[in-house]
Amino acid sequence: MTRNAVKANDERDKGPAGKDGTLARRDLFRVAGLGAGALGAAVAGTVAAVPEAEAAPAEPQTTGYRETDHVRKVYEVSRF
């Protein structure tokens, strides 16, 4: 009984081309500690959250450096 079951399993593993590689990969990930839930929902969720676009800082009322449209244009064209 048991032998039969094992044999059937073996045959299934030898299925269509590319199947072996997929299973071997899966085994490797599992053995290496990359199981399905390895990262946990908390981390995955925190990381996947797209950071909210930062609101443009209010223009300070000073006579010092200000990022005017002209300055922004210079930054834009000097991008490498």
Partner: peptide, 21 residues
């Protein structure tokens, strides 16, 4: 702080990668 807290709760599942985690 939120990500650090989430990372603190990680538990590896063995292997070299699990140990690193």
């Amino acid at each position: 702080a939120g990500l650090l807290a989430a990372l603190g709760g990680l538990a590896g599942e063995g292997g070299e990668f699990g140990t690193a985690l």
